Amino acid sequence: MPVRTTPWPEGTPCWVDCQVDDPVKESEFYSDLFGWTIEDGGDDSGGYLMGRKGANTIAGIGPKPRAGTPSVWTTYFAADDVDAIAEKVGAAGGQVVMPPFDVLDAGRMLLGTDTVGAVFAVWQARAHSGAAVYNEHGAYCWNELHTRQLDAAKRFYAETFGFTYTDVGDGESMIYSMFSTRGGEQPAGGMNDDTVMPGEPMPSYWLTWFQFDDVDAGVARAAELGATIPMPATDSPVGRMAMVMAPQGELFGLIDTTVTVGEMPQ
């Protein structure tokens, strides 16, 4: 089981949490689906809950900052200096929605939007380094931006975090870029051009994927627990995958990266 106990390199997706109307109720859904134990952060946490596997943190579940906003999963990017990143966000054309602030002794963070309108967070670790468990059943394994303005998004994150890109896909049915952090050798996440996707356009958003060892069983259980399934289980070259909308409306993906079918479009 991979476990991380030190801060993540700058620009790496290092933490995910969801903001919902009723964190306690939604924590029951995730506890059942993923096998998490849920820890209450105490009186000072503002109702923020932690999903854990044993003693190790996986993800957070918290209340919405404002009533009436959508329930969402948020991707956090690691930063050595969140205040310096805040300046880069503005210089690159993004917006700092919540300026840098301290989260008790856990760390320092900001909330922002990029130039294509997707919301993200930035985390400077102190006592809390981010996700300790990753890339295994019930833990996040991939984060990707969905947008119809891929080139603009790539410029923003290159200027803000120093991302470099590897393009994959055939340019028609699949237009996708994997990003690596400054000095990183392995992809840290991806960006999908949704112009090739059918259906009505959606606003740009960051999608969190969780590793699930039997996606079909996970989809069935999620539905039993009150979720809806906007994308049923499907085979792909990167894994068998599905998309789930949790009972309070936040969207996430399930993927079994050990079950692959076919080759990536070239």
Rank of each mutant, 00 (worst) to 15 (best):
G62D: 01
T208I: 08
A222E: 03
Y134I: 15
D114I: 04
I58R: 05
T234M: 14
G93K: 08
D17C: 10
S173P: 14
D194W: 03
G199V: 08
P100S: 04
I85M: 05
V219P: 03
W73K: 06
A84Q: 03
R108F: 00
D102W: 00
G54T: 05
S129C: 15
T258G: 09
G117D: 10
G171Y: 08
G218Q: 00
A118R: 10
E263I: 06
T166F: 07
V96W: 09
M202G: 02
S129P: 12
E250T: 07
A118P: 14
E172V: 14
V24H: 02
A78G: 03
E200M: 09
F29V: 02
Y165V: 07
V24Y: 02
R148L: 13
G112L: 05
P187S: 10
L49N: 09
A222F: 01
R240C: 07
L150W: 08
T195G: 08
W15K: 11
M197V: 15
V16G: 07
Y30C: 12
A59S: 10
A158D: 01
A91F: 05
M197F: 14
G190H: 07
V261P: 06
V196K: 06
P198C: 03
R155D: 14
D81L: 06
Y157V: 08
L254C: 12
I85C: 12
A121E: 13
L145N: 04
A91M: 11
I229N: 11
T181V: 15
E39W: 10
W123K: 14
T228G: 01
E224K: 07
D105K: 04
F252D: 10
T115C: 15
E172I: 14
Y205R: 13
C14F: 02
E144R: 01
V238N: 05
V259F: 05
Y157S: 12
M50T: 11
T164W: 06
D256M: 06
L225K: 03
R108N: 03
S177V: 09
Q19K: 06
N143K: 01
A152L: 11
P265C: 10
L251W: 01
A246G: 07
E224G: 11
T115N: 14
W73N: 10
I175W: 10
I229R: 02
A153G: 08
A242T: 02
